[in-house]
Write a protein that binds this DNA or RNA. Structure first.
Lengths: 360, 360
DNA sequence: TTGTACGCGTTATCAG
DNA sequence: CTGATAACGCGTACAA
């Protein structure tokens, strides 16, 4: 049964400091060797599947292993082999459904390859991310998956440079580095949404965009600007800031207040969407009667919203799986590479004909 | 990048000692000691904050540490101290918003205490959970947070019994064990919802319940049965199965097909809810006109659904935080204990007066 | 107060 | 084919 160890102590800073050595030392190779009457190295050979072991030896060892209920110590194994079989995943907030889905995809693939995943949440603080990267480095994780808050953070950059193994960025780009990356084709989704809105008669389209310090926001804004470039009739208003409901709300209020308010809005994330919806509701604007709405990334129960939401979806599970894949490739000695995954625009009733703004 | 290679050295008996299997050249205590011109143990003492070290020694060491950019190897540290400062979190699916929120709460608290968190997804397969528990045991994690799929699984039970350190269950109960647990007061939420529905004239209430092999489902069903007990007019129909949209759909279809269809439904999870909504839509039933609806756990954008959904909410972030807390307590030597967290029923337009079933 | 030496559990080398 | 033994990097009795 569980033995409660009372010798532990509280450090001055409140951190729990467990007692030094574990009381009940579980059987090791040594015990197995004794039980089987062989040398420890033979036990190790059998367990690691070394080719040059006799049948008798194998049986003796396996019997002893079963009898003692021996389980290898992965810590010692890592110590010895240099591989921890652990991947660190640095994210802003695992409770973000997009991220948790990515995490799931990654973990499933990693498990297939025998790796475990360690998750850290920065809550959008670059310095925390840098700390975590350093921590994971000290933990000697074999690889790092990064979904960073701020691609331009120097602390983060320095920290990841000090990490000397496989790295993969998840829909991120850091200048002057050749990390592997899983990117999404935001331009495609934005362009499709744009075309759809234009076909409905919209001429001025607003975008409540996320932080410009991450790839998705930049790609989306660029794609939207590109779409209107050279057109005399089509225009755009883009407001970029944090991925928060507050930004969604404020940006929407400001956008809709002006004389040249857009007749359609693209929300840059599910968090931003919340604020956008609140603002529109507060202004008494109906969707799509007064303003059409598109949001980035899938929304749970989107079909049951009023009206159902048009979305530009990524494939988060696949993003995670692919990120893991790119990591495993590097760990297998291959060169880091970049993969582009699709986005898909799905139009619903939240996009309608452009309202005549003068009638309002 | 590791560029420096350490050459082979001469052993005490003149033999050539080969390089380590993996060529790591990150500086260790030894390098720091050499740079500072002191013994390795002195370096260790300084770094671990040993009280009996002179000022000069401390400075010499810290200077060398800074110069060499030494970072301690947490793996070796764990090897030596017996503590990995790592907690394993076994869940069915991190992409479930309830769970990812719990994970966030836990990770934030664990970080405060210097611990990292390792997440594993079983996708509701008890044998995978057992495997993971065994894996985390071999990894020698200091504690285990369990949000398991099936409390009655013997493989799981055996696996967790073989783990000999701190354990905390997250809204789970396994018979015959005294694990610490963070539980939620489901009875409270269900009772409130029930009373509200009854006050609206509902006499027959359906529950599309989750798996009976986990605490929340059992508590909810029990609370609902208790609420109708002794009443001649009030009745209940409960269907329990997996936490899936498919179950939500099937159960709803069957419930509503019978002659004594309920006029109100409680959905047992956000996944189940999806199926329930689809079924009601498929049947052409309106909410709350034909049937009132309550769902368990918060739904993103619940305010913007049509109609806004009544929910029985848990406090997932707090659940995670508290689970971490209970784990830390045990690691500090305290006895395992159980905490009860609240649930809250919030009524919205999705609950309305009972429809006269004969009019349909 | 500081340094030397040992051991945590494992794998890999090398000599039988 | 097998067994003894040196590391992996660190913390810590023990000796100086």
């Amino acid at each position: 049964m569980r033995t409660v160890e009372r010798e532990s102590a509280q450090g001055p800073d409140g951190r729990v400091v467990p007692r030094a050595a574990r009381q009940r030392t579980r059987p090791g190779l040594k015990e197995v060797a004794e039980r089987a009457g062989v040398g420890v190295s033979s036990v190790s050979r059998v367990l690691t599947g070394h080719p040059e072991v006799s049948e008798v030896m194998r049986n003796r060892v396996m019997d002893a292993v079963a009898a003692i209920r021996y389980e290898p110590d992965l810590l010692a194994q890592s110590m010895r082999t240099g591989a921890t079989m652990t991947i660190g995943f640095v994210v802003s907030d695992i409770s973000n459904p997009l991220i948790s889905e990515i995490a799931l995809g990654a973990e499933l693939r990693l498990r297939e390859a025998g790796y475990s995943m360690m998750v850290t949440n920065s809550l959008n603080k670059p310095e925390v991310e840098a700390d975590y990267i350093a921590l994971l480095t000290r933990r000697r994780v074999d690889g790092l998956m990064l979904s960073i808050t701020d691609e331009t953070s120097e602390m983060m950059d320095a920290a990841v440079r000090r990490f000397d193994s496989a790295v993969v960025l998840v829909d991120r780009h850091v200048a002057g580095a050749d990390y592997a990356a899983v990117n999404c084709d935001h331009a495609h989704g934005i362009t499709e949404a744009f075309d759809h809105l234009v076909s409905l008669g919209h001429t001025r389209i607003g975008m409540v965009n996320g932080s410009p310090n991450v790839r998705p926001s930049r790609e989306r804004a660029a794609a939207l600007r590109r779409a209107t470039r050279g057109s005399g009739t089509l225009s755009t208003v883009i407001r970029s800031a944090g991925f928060t409901p507050a930004h969604g709300y404020d940006a929407t209020m400001k956008m809709m207040a002006g004389k040249d308010a857009p007749t359609a809005i693209i929300a840059g994330s599910n968090q931003i969407l919340i604020g956008v919806l609140r603002a529109l509701r507060g202004l008494g604007l109906s969707i799509p009667g007064d303003v059409s709405l598109v949001t980035c990334d899938a929304v749970p129960l989107a079909d049951f919203l009023d009206p159902p939401l048009s979305t530009i979806a990524r494939v988060p599970r696949e993003m995670g799986r692919m990120a893991a894949e790119l990591l495993l490739e590097q760990l297998a000695g291959e060169e880091p590479r970049t993969v582009m995954l699709p986005t898909q625009f799905v139009a619903t009733l939240s996009c309608g004909p452009a309202a005549d703004t003068h009638e309002r």
